[in-house]
Design a protein around this nucleic acid. Sequence first.
DNA 1: TGGGTTTCTCAGGGAAATCACAGGTTGCCG
DNA 2: CGGCAACCTGTGATTTCCCTGAGAAACCCA
Lengths: 250, 250
Amino acid sequence: MVDNMTTTSPQGRTELLRPDGSPVRVLVVDDEMSITELLSMALRYEGWQIRSAGDGQGALQSAREFRPDAVVLDMMLPDMDGLSVLGRLRRDLPDVPVLFLTAKDAVEDRIAGLTAGGDDYVTKPFSLEEVVARLRGLIRRSGAADRRSDSVLVVGDLTLDEDSHEVTRGGDGIHLTATEFELLRFLMRNPRRVLSKAQILDRVWSYDFGGQANVVELYISYLRRKIDAGREPMIHTRRGAGYLIKPAVS
Amino acid sequence: MVDNMTTTSPQGRTELLRPDGSPVRVLVVDDEMSITELLSMALRYEGWQIRSAGDGQGALQSAREFRPDAVVLDMMLPDMDGLSVLGRLRRDLPDVPVLFLTAKDAVEDRIAGLTAGGDDYVTKPFSLEEVVARLRGLIRRSGAADRRSDSVLVVGDLTLDEDSHEVTRGGDGIHLTATEFELLRFLMRNPRRVLSKAQILDRVWSYDFGGQANVVELYISYLRRKIDAGREPMIHTRRGAGYLIKPAVS
DNA sequence: TGGGTTTCTCAGGGAAATCACAGGTTGCCG
DNA sequence: CGGCAACCTGTGATTTCCCTGAGAAACCCA
């Protein structure tokens, strides 16, 4: 299995790379074109190389020739069920980590069995931040022991641990809800960059969210209450443009 | 994927170029002729090569033979909807970034997923500066890891960061409103060049602006207050001709 | 099943940004 | 030097955008 490393791009975004410096490869398998499109775009934006397939047969063939570092696999495929695909996949690529996509009401224990091997899953409808974060985790852990990347984001005196979901500011622990956590992670993965409400909505909320755009404002307000409360503010509004996070002093 | 670079023309304008030195190619798709004309002119002025199409069929055909580096795509086309066009476009040109044009009130409805992949959008009515800036951003980021261009404009001791929207003069941070920011960006992208009020109005204000021409004077005055206040002035009036910006000492 | 938690809608208040208007100032030309 | 055109800028009306409290609905866990 490859030994992944990270590098930091000029924009300050951290990217996963393979040991030879080539981009990480991910295979996306889903029968709904809109889903593979959505995922392909988002994952390419991470700097990864993407190939997609719409059924089990295509998936197995792509896997053989593309030799991905990770696979995103819908459990419901038209031609064969997820388990058979997984089995055959493992014959060719024994160590490749798999991120399962499942329906919300799927049987929990069946999934639990599958993820025992270090795989992971997300339920539909998912948010892109969630998928990207899980994939990053899988790829990072599948790399050898020596991995230099850790899972902690740091901006000023604010830290966020993607593994333990722990958040601290100035050493004090802060409890965040799931949505607050995802929003903060997205902000911290793009420090000092203005993110529009539409961008935030597209990345942090699930793709079928049909609600009011002001949930973003609302959750920004929640975050401020927990993170900036009585301190030098780190979350800033750029009226008419969006929000950004940056270290307090500067 | 192309690896874009920048070069500086004799006029002092920074242009995006492809690695072989040939101009960037952009495909513009909109069914309103007045819009494609407006955009084509503005984008050609950037030194880019433009082709336009009025419907989805034409767009797909043009994309295949023209192989653009970026696409401007109206979401409302006569023959097919924007998403289908996008899907098929992606089959031929998997990595091409897309800038969507949408109606103002469609924003809330469903832009979901569009900006997810690193694509972007602007709402109608837009300003040309906005479109150009977003396109430059998309093209810049679509270049692979090694992208050498950054997002900071510099004129003398004045800097403007297009990502963080930060503006500084002599190291001091300066807060600008959205319109002030766009105006300054336009000036700084054309240093030492006289820009007429009509030009400024056409580029910085949206194309359906119906107000008094003296908004330009007004906003120049706002900018001076914030940027030139108590320092050697950088913004100069050329009576009867327009305005220009240049480094203070010279 | 029930209570606490989380997510989200709705709506009011308030602040900031945009712009029109008009009177003052400056520079240019005859 | 007078007068006019071009430009500058103070004031305030209007609009737009953002924030946040209150509460309903969904969710989770025991």
